[in-house]
């Protein structure tokens, strides 16, 4: 676990070395390219949408990685948010998309607070496993209370209205797609801002010195809780988008494999990297779908091998490789101080 945190990317407030403007330009291009998908590659729209929803959830895991903590149970908040939306639609047919999203995020935030208050006392393997335990408990509740939750079949989440309008399937899909892109940009930006803020910086210093934190008059638990809440909310947004995209929620949403997948994607993209969470999710989904179409279960082997290569040779993930290329292209080399981070 400490391995992963050591591998995570620079997390300091200073502007990173290299060329931030080039970085911003590439980010803008990538977002525009994504926005063009319904026109240039309509067959990929659904796939990309699922990847974006997952990416926002992975961002939640990424936040925790910045503090050197790995959660193996964050699908819990992904699932709670999805189910909150489904229950809302069941009790309030024709509810608005915004309402579904808000209900999901509230559910995730509330459960994040409850679980968070408990798990922030722990670090490392215990933190990771306790999160897993909570998600397993919720999973079995979903499976066992069949009459409420629909058991393994889950429950349908009918198409919500959009600002009062009843949309056809394709129209609704377009709305969800662009909403996902907008939320990716907004939440990615907010998370980046939070990372460089005093509280975000203190959150990231948790792994280097909790003694000093206490002697600054701060509670390490409270600081961890603030990041934990952020991560739960991000997973909630991802889960809500996923549920509305798929139109059905099942216990699989909180299944531990889903949690592990989030950690996998976060490390793949660049442990601790905001952009990496989305790049990782896109690559993951694309490889999964296309490789399995061509050759059965080979995709797991492919991704496993890929992750192995990343951890061994590029511990900062795909974003680390990308940054390296940007630096090489740029005129200015990072100072030793920046490299040491």
């Amino acid at each position: 676990m400490s391995e992963i945190s050591q591998h995570s990317t620079p997390r300091r407030a200073a502007k990173s070395g290299g060329m931030p403007s080039l970085r911003a330009l590439l980010t803008l291009l990538a977002v525009l390219l994504l926005a063009a998908v319904p026109f240039i590659a309509p067959s990929m729209q659904l796939l990309i949408n699922l990847a974006l929803a997952k990416g926002i959830a992975v961002l939640g895991v990424t936040v925790l990685l910045r503090a050197g903590q790995v959660s193996f149970g964050h699908a819990l908040f992904f699932g709670i948010s999805a189910y909150a939306g489904a229950f809302l639609m069941a009790s309030l047919p024709g509810a608005d998309l915004i309402l579904v999203l808000v209900a999901g995020v509230l559910g995730a935030a509330l459960s994040g607070l409850l679980v968070g208050l408990f798990v922030v006392r722990y670090r490392g393997i215990f933190f990771g496993m306790l999160n897993l335990a909570f998600s397993m408990i919720f999973w079995s509740i979903l499976e066992k209370f069949y009459h409420v939750t629909g058991g393994a079949d889950g429950i349908r989440l009918p198409r919500p209205t959009v600002l009062g309008m009843v949309l056809e399937r394709s129209g609704f899909e377009a709305v969800i797609f662009y909403l996902s892109i907008a939320l990716m940009v907004l939440l990615g930006w907010l998370t980046l801002r939070w990372f460089v803020s005093p509280v975000g910086q203190i959150f990231q210093s948790l792994k280097t010195n909790e003694t000093r934190l206490e002697y600054l008059g701060l509670s390490p638990k409270r600081v961890l809780l603030s990041g934990y809440l952020l991560s739960a909310v991000l997973c909630g947004v991802g889960g809500s988008l996923m549920a509305m995209t798929q139109g059905v929620v099942t216990p699989e949403y909180v299944w531990w494999v889903r949690s592990a997948e989030m950690v996998f994607i976060a490390v793949l993209g660049g442990a601790g990297s905001v952009r990496g969470a989305f790049i990782g999710a896109l690559i993951y989904e694309i490889v999964r779908v296309y490789a399995s179409a061509f050759a059965g279960d080979i995709w797991q082997m492919l991704l496993g091998g890929f992750l192995l290569v990343i951890i061994l040779f590029a511990p900062k993930g795909i974003m680390g490789i990308a940054d390296g290329l940007i630096h090489r292209g740029g005129k200015r080399r990072a100072t030793t101080a920046e490299e040491a981070r």
Partner: peptide
């Protein structure tokens, strides 16, 4: 007892921010 991944100045800024109470979560340290 310092934040070893942060710079000298950042360690001080964090201390000052802690003193003032962490009000604005979107302001750059």
């Amino acid at each position: 007892q310092l934040f070893t991944e942060h710079t000298a100045l950042e360690n001080l800024l964090i201390s000052a921010a802690a003193r003032e109470g962490l009000r604005n979560p979107l302001q750059n340290l």
